[in-house]
Simulated assay, not measured.
Amino acid sequence: MIDLRSDTVTRPSEAMRQVMFDAPLGDDVWGDDPSVAHLEAYIAERTGKAAALFFPSGTQSNLVALLSHCQRGDEYIVGQQAHTYRMEGGGAAVLGGIQPQPIENEADGTLPLKKIEAAVKPIDPHFARTRLLTLENTFHGQVLDAGYVEAATTLARRFGLATHLDGARIGNAAAATGASLKALCTPFDTISICCSKGLGAPAGSVLVGAADFIETARRWRKVVGGGMRQVGMLAAACEYALEHQLTPLVEDHAKAERLAAGLAEIDGITVTAQATNMVFVEFTRPALDPADLHAWLKARDILVGALYAPRFVTHRDVSMGDIDRVVDVVGEYFKRG
């Protein structure tokens, strides 16, 4: 099966499995799982932050960051299309009483600085208290421009706002730009980094930030059910992924470029965007039923993304040969009468 639905479908390599098997274990709720402690120290050092905290998922890591930055009745500024706003179950509002203030993303994933400034509420009992600016990198595969990040976080600090980055795919940003994780994380107070997407770990995200913030986050992790026991096997997988599988992400980007070029040659498809490991398309044949195409591909052992936003995501478990096969099979579909 060639699975291009997401880079979340990646599986541990044999080397990663061996590291998991050999990982020393303890009880992380008691703070004595050595593999978790080593991962947290490792990623804190790589990102230039004082401390880190291991989570089972990126959704929980982002949620705990919001709960730790904001109190009930506060608000956070966020992109209308951002994962933390649209794709994480409304957790901040449901569980934290935190009001989102969405701003429409520009095509490159940025939030216009003037709109950020206009969204900050005055100190007045009528308004929710604006406490936090959140950004996402990469955003739909696109790397946020470093100059924009610096300007946006500087603006946030001018208004006394904290800053959080949903860095689920920050590894792709690092691979695409050659920037270090530390350079990409430095402008932000906190960053959530996912290891279970293109990096290939089976589960796990890490939240990094100041030491006192991470202690607050540790309590919130417990509150939302994120305390884990002998979880060193997952932590070891995440550390292996960060140490060995970051640079190879450039190969996933090359696969996406090849896929986009191939699909663009097919009459009936328009490639609307390609960035890092993602390719977005539109179907230009008026009578086309996207569900029919998906069924056609699935019958030929190819899985692709959601019907409402056709997306192909490349990753370490697909080869260049797989990419060529996908282009051929999609081409065959559109050549039918």
Rank of each mutant, 00 (worst) to 15 (best):
E215A: 14
T186G: 04
A261Y: 14
P34M: 11
I193C: 14
D289F: 11
A50N: 02
A176K: 08
S205H: 11
G96E: 04
P202A: 07
G48E: 05
H140K: 08
L307G: 15
R258P: 11
P56C: 09
S57Y: 14
D124R: 08
V313N: 02
Y42N: 12
G89E: 05
A273P: 10
E117T: 09
M320K: 07
A217F: 04
R5C: 00
A41E: 03
A107S: 05
A179F: 09
T177M: 09
I103C: 14
V94F: 03
A256T: 15
P102C: 11
K298A: 09
P112F: 02
H294M: 02
P187F: 13
Y42E: 12
P24K: 09
D292R: 08
R157V: 00
V29I: 15
P100Y: 04
G305A: 01
D3A: 09
R5W: 01
G225Q: 10
V326L: 00
N105V: 00
A217K: 03
V36Q: 04
N137F: 02
K255H: 11
V208Q: 12
D22F: 03
N277Q: 08
D328G: 12
V304E: 12
A291V: 15
L135Y: 02
V223Y: 06
A295H: 14
T270W: 14
A273S: 11
G337H: 13
G337A: 06
K197F: 14
S196E: 02
R5V: 01
Q274C: 03
A146C: 03
L165W: 12
A118N: 03
S61T: 13
G167Q: 06
G147N: 05
